[in-house]
């Protein structure tokens, strides 16, 4: 079980951050991801394996300024 943006999610063992993001429909060019208080560099999304107890915050940016 991990927590994504405040909601509990059950994931298969070995799921990567990139797989989760794609599964959830996030556009990786428009987000920042915090895991357990640390920002995950974009180039590490594919290598970051999610573990039970991880707390993720995916921040999505929309246009306008």
């Amino acid at each position: 079980m991990i927590r994504v943006n405040g909601k509990d999610r059950i994931l298969e063992e070995g799921t990567t951050l990139l797989a989760l993001l794609e599964q959830e429909g996030w556009q990786t060019g428009r987000i920042a991801v915090e895991k357990n208080g640390e920002i995950i560099p974009k180039r590490q999304y594919g290598d970051t394996i999610l573990h039970s107890g991880d707390v993720l915050e995916v921040v999505g940016f929309v246009g306008g300024g």
């Binding site: 428009r30 974009k42 929309v62």
Partner: peptide, 10 residues
């Protein structure tokens, strides 16, 4: 532009 926002923040 959202991609630019994400690029700068990251």
């Amino acid at each position: 532009v959202p991609e630019n926002k994400a690029m700068l923040v990251n």
